[in-house]
Amino acid sequence: MLPASLDEAVEALAAHPAAVPVAGATDLMEAVNAGRLRPASLVGLGRITELRGWRYEDGGTAVLGAGLTHARMDRPDFAALIPALADAARTAGPPQVRNVGTLGGNIATAAPAGDTLPVLAALEASVTLARAGATREVPVSHLLTGLDPLRPGELLTWVRVPLLHAPQVFLKATGRSGPARATASVALVLDPARRAVRCAVGAVAPVPLRPLEAEAWVAGCIDWDGSREIDPAATAAFGEYVAAACVPDGYGAEGAWEAVTEGPSAAAVRLRRTVAVLARRALGRALK
């Protein structure tokens, strides 16, 4: 099925609840080729041009089409709008993948190392889920954690992102120069209007994690009215704070989130070091 408009796509999904919507197919076809997925039918979203762009709402929100490709998000006009999302899109994979892989696909796949996910979590973005005759608005984090999952026949159509007009950073550690899956990633955005710092750590857990206490603490250390300076020691402490909050002592072992008595595992120590460095550098860049 190749609907030409959003309404047609939603109708098609309503008529065939088992059909799988497909946009860039970079994740879907990999699963099909590996034999993990045999969709009964597909709803191709490639012809729905309205989902491939974005619009503004209320002056303070960008509504991004789920069909935005990573390559499009990397362009300067978009990067000026939501810099962290552009950074994440730029590192998401080789050009072949970025040219077809979409924002909506990254959210729907919800891979732990999905590069746009920590950015959307830090931005506190929400998504619009459309079904025949109705739409609903769900925070990205609720969707990812399964608190409010995608229902049968629903299509992810728009992603609403607040425009903050302030520095944003996305950093990821991969251990190589070429495109690769993140071992850890950090998205950090400043929200000067609310005098807040929001941060999310990706790839260390099934969903992006928000170190809320560390965010609140570091927001208090920043001189918001002046040049937004911060004591370097506070930046370093923020890194450690974020790492300790997001990587449990038993990381890498079974039941990692349960209490561990014998101190952090070697894997946890390594990952914390990486997350701490990323968070410190992200804050440093954002306040530079």
Partner: peptide, 13 residues
């Protein structure tokens, strides 16, 4: 920088 384009590299390190 190590880490590649758009990576987390920091010249100081």
């Amino acid at each position: 920088l190590p880490g590649g384009p758009g990576g987390a590299g920091d010249p100081a390190a």
